[in-house]
Design a protein around this nucleic acid. Structure first.
Length: 423
RNA sequence: AGAGAGGUGUCCGAGUGGUUUAAGGAGCACGCUUGGAAAGCGUGUAUACGGCAACGUAUCGGGGGUUCGAAUCCCUUCCUCUCUGCCA
């Protein structure tokens, strides 16, 4: 969430940056500032009258104690009049605050200076590439054929049990998921991240804090009976560990990692984008999250990018790192790097990770603050990234490591899977 | 799911309608004392909003209500604990 004071002091800059994110309704900046002015005025007059009420009430108490009943009655009448003034003020204030809140949550985060202009994925900027294109055997197949051939994933039965996009992993396919999760978590904890296993459902307050509500209401599964949301990523429950918390500066940086299944309705997806494991409603993911001092968040973002890159290098996959353009970035992010691995069989790039700096956008919503060296309360910065999302890693390994008579495995996974070949 | 007991500041804990301006204690910070430390003594120690400031307003799990006045009374909701039930 953006801060009104920031908008007030940087009105033109904010508009310019919102435009980079292709936010249409730039006049809302002025609306918010005007509403906030009104709120200030209302509060000033409310406080003044309320102060008189409080003082008089105290005096009434004193009068009662001294037995000055008549004086008390006079004061009661005065208070009654002030309270009549207070009533419409209170109502107006509630209206203005609600309107202000509803308006300000519509603003996406402002993009970082490094974010390239552009609207579509084609305008993302490739910052680095690594690995090399594998040479596939003759008659190489895409993962949706391979997983059928080797009976690793059964989409039809998953669809029978639940619906389309809920894969049923079988045998070595299931074990491979477990091996990947284990490997990713070990890699993250070795780098200093603390492992969490969070709830897989969250309440509305948590979904609001990380920015899923109200922006992505329709993208989450909603258990209406209890008003819980199935998490679309472990980022939501884990970041919320620090909702409404004032940290000590010495607590920072906080590094957390968590495995969770992720549930996404993916409303509006269709075509070959959704074939096989390319896009599903439930998938496994290991996430890394950091809460840091604001002046360090740029450097921490780079560290996290290197961390994820190392993972892809160890898996021996061809990858590239993209800096997302303003139009392709997420709502709450200030800057995002996407990682894509190359699927030689599909001849296309598959997104496997997204690493973002949210700066103070989430922490302001969450009221996650820290006390700095001078004892001043500041908003921390939050960052997160996938390390990694499993389905497309699974797809890429299955496709890129296929041989004439089976599927090999990257060396780092041998001990985790307990074999050198997947099949 | 049913019955009961609770939720107060960084922590423990008092407080059942009016000097509560939230007692007292612990912890922490600073100062005095000391050769140094401990003890002792003193001072300080929540957040948000408004205000240049003085200060004001709000907050005792959340929301609503009664009252001139609510941590305290009422309603509602969430959470924790105990017992019972059900269950992996």
């Amino acid at each position: 969430m953006l801060q009104v004071n920031f908008l007030r002091q940087n009105r033109d800059l904010a508009k310019k940056k919102l435009a980079i994110k292709h936010f249409q309704n730039l006049d809302l900046v002025d609306t918010v500032i005007a509403k906030d002015d009104e709120r200030k005025q209302l509060q000033a007059s409310f406080d003044e009258t309320q102060s008189k009420v409080n003082a008089a009430s105290k005096e009434i108490g004193a009068c009662m104690a001294k037995g000055e009943k008549e004086k008390a009655e006079v004061l009661k009448n005065e208070v009654a009049n002030w309270k009549k003034e207070l009533e419409p003020l209170k109502q107006r204030m509630a209206e203005v605050e609600e309107h202000l809140q509803k308006t300000i949550v519509q603003f996406p985060n402002l993009p970082h200076d490094l974010v390239p202009l552009g609207k579509t994925p084609e305008e993302n900027e490739v910052v680095r590439e690594g690995g090399s294109t594998p040479t596939l055997p003759a008659g190489a197949q895409a993962h949706w054929d391979l997983i059928k051939k080797y009976n690793l994933v059964d989409f039809e039965t998953g669809a029978k049990i639940t619906g389309s996009g809920f894969p049923l992993y079988i045998g070595k396919g299931a074990k491979f998921q477990r091996a990947l999760v284990q490997y990713f978590l070990d890699f993250n904890t070795a780098a200093g991240y603390t492992e969490y296993l969070p709830p897989f459902m969250v309440n509305a307050a948590s979904a609001f804090a990380t920015g899923q509500l109200p922006d992505k209401e329709g993208q989450m599964y909603h258990a209406t009976e209890d008003d819980f949301y199935l998490i679309p990523t472990a980022e939501v429950p884990v970041t919320n560990v620090y909702r409404d918390v004032v940290l000590k500066e010495s607590d920072l940086p906080i590094q957390m990692t968590a495995y969770s299944p992720c549930f996404r309705r993916e409303a509006g997806s269709f075509g070959k984008e959704v074939r096989g494991l390319n896009r599903v409603h439930q998938f496994e993911k290991v996430e890394i999250i950091q809460i840091v001092r604001p002046d360090t968040s740029d450097a921490v973002l780079n560290e996290m990018v290197l961390h994820v890159e190392k993972l892809l290098q160890q898996l021996g996959l061809q990858y590239r790192i993209l800096r997302l353009c303003g139009g392709d970035m997420g709502f709450a992010s200030a800057i995002t790097y996407d990682f894509e691995v190359y699927s030689a069989a599909q001849e296309k790039w598959l997104e496997v990770s997204s690493v973002s700096n949210f700066e103070s956008y989430q922490t302001y919503r969450m009221k996650c603050r820290y006390k700095d060296a001078e004892g001043k309360i500041q908003f921390a910065h939050s960052l997160n990234g996938s390390s990694l999302a499993l389905p497309r890693i699974f797809a890429a390994i299955v496709e890129n490591y296929q041989t004439e008579n089976g599927i090999a495995l990257p060396k780092v996974l041998h001990s985790y899977f307990g074999a050198e070949q997947l099949v």
